[in-house]
Structures are given as C-alpha cells and as structure tokens.
Amino acid sequence: MRTTHVGSYPKIPDLPAPGRWRTAAEKLQRGEITREEFRRVEDEVTREAIADQVGAGLDMVTDGQIRWEDPQTYFARRMDGFSIDGLQRWFDTNVYYRQPVAQGRVAWREPVTVEDYRFARSHSPRPVRPVVTGPYTLARLSQNRYYPRFSDFVLDVAQALNRELRALDAESPPLIQVDEPAILQHKEDLALFREAAAALLEGVRAPVALYTYFGDARGVVRVFYELPVEVVGLDFVAGVRNWEVLESEGFPQDRRLGFGVVDARNTRLETVDEVLRALDRVSRFVPLDRVDLGPTAGLEFLPRRAAKAKLVRIAEVKRAALEVTR
C-alpha cells in the first residue's frame, strides 16, 4: 500500500500564527511587493506544505498547489485563447473560481507546472506527483464563446494539455495526476471524455493517475478502466456509491486504486479503525499492495491543522494495517 496526498494544501496556518501567504497576496495587490518577492513567499509556503506531508509520513506528496489561484485559472491564464471572467461556485463546495472564457482558439503556450514540479522535487525527500486539471473538466467549467461545438473546444484543450503532460514527462516524474471531477456530473459526455483523454495521454510515458471526486463513477468507470492509466482515483465519501461500482464492475488487476476514503471536506477526523475497516472492505476487490490510500480530494477545504491531522491519520492507518497483516 502507498499513502499519498492528491492535491491542494491550506496556504495559511491556523490563527494566531500569521498568514504570510495572505499578507503577501494583499501586498502584491496593493503593489507593495514585486512578483518576484511574492514568488519567494510561495516558495517558502510550498516547502511548508511539503514538510507537513513528509512529516505526516506519506509515501508520495504534492506541492500543495500553493501557487494555484484555483484549478481552472492556474492553467487557463497561461494558455492561448482564454480570458478570465467572474466568480463561479466550484462544484458543490463553498469555494469559488474565476471562470475562464474561450475567446479564440485554445493552444498551449508554455509549461505551466514544470517549474513548480522541479521546485517541489528538489525540496522533497519523498516522490512528488504533479497534478494537472484534465481537459474535460477545464473546458466544462469554462465558458465557450468561440467554438461552434463544445466537443471541438474540449479536444483543443486536450491537445494543449497533452503538450503540458509531455513537458512534464521530460522531467521523468514518478506519476502524473490528472483531475477529471466534472465527468461525474456530466456522464452523458462519456464518449467525448474518452476521446479527450486519449488525446491527452498520447505519447506520454510517465505513469498517469486519473482522479475523480465529489461523486461516484457508476456508468462511467469502465471507460476509466480502459484508458492507459496506472491509477484510477475514486472518492468513497461524497461518492459512497463507488462501493456499488466495485461490486458490479470489479477492479482491473493491472491498475492501482486511488482510494479516497478520508474526507477532505469535513473536519471530523476518521478513526484508525474506521479506515482499517474500509481497507478491509476494499481488499475484497483490490489487493492492498495496489491501493493508494489518500484523502478524497485536495485539502484546502479545511483549516491547516485539520488538514494535517488527516494526513497524519492516513499514515497511521498504513502502519496499523501493516501490523495487522504481519
């Protein structure tokens, strides 16, 4: 079994510790510090996020997405064809994102995540997984004012993000995580999703993890299983019916399961026993050595203390599970 984080980490510590990132963001807005100075604060906070994950005892970490305003803007603002518009609610959360608007042909312009990945890797004793928002989700959460057909829009975004994945690939990461939560809300687009995923993964040699959350994969999981990915990530809290998916569809023998069972959206801390029981249950479908145990989604929905407690718990569960099987 591998323990891993799968996304964002709170950018500021709990009160009364000063929120350096927040103060710096305010100063940047007021023009009191330079972009370069702000970047140094982001660097420090990224190192904190990595240190918390490593300190918790995870086998694999992310950079905490400290530099991401949100999972849409972070990519769209550095691609051709997009402008950035007003606030929209992000799925069923109380978190908001600035909506990208396709104003022209969407294309890749420059690496978005590569520098961040290099920085995180050089400051982490544990392997780092870079995360990329998937083409279907990026297009679905944007407005389209350019393409006559939504499918053309999605496929151009997939082409652009394929360049991003290839740029990451050149860094030989242990794994690239692609987030596609939106397909769970729009299962009618499954064929288009599959086509976009194929275009996205074309020529990518690094192992890829496809992650979904905030829902269940009934009716679409077969397509996830058919894609050339190493890990399929599912949310078993908001998507509690993913248990039915395992019952009815099983799990392929040559894939790993991203087992999202520690709730990223509630402060209530799962007990070790509770997660061990879930592991026991999932082991009927997937041997534990092919399970990636993690939170259901990024942890920026929580205050930092609660986020860290979740990661510590995940590592504790792995230790307890090893003792049980020893």
Binding site: P10, I12, W21, E26, D70, V95, L302
Partner: peptide
C-alpha cells in the same frame, strides 16, 4: 469555529 478557510483569491 474550526479555523480560516479560503473561498477564492485571498479571501478567507
């Protein structure tokens, strides 16, 4: 109060 949570940008 659990703590501060970001809603967007630097709004907590």
């Amino acid at each position: 109060i659990a703590g501060l949570v970001r809603s967007y940008g630097n709004r907590y």
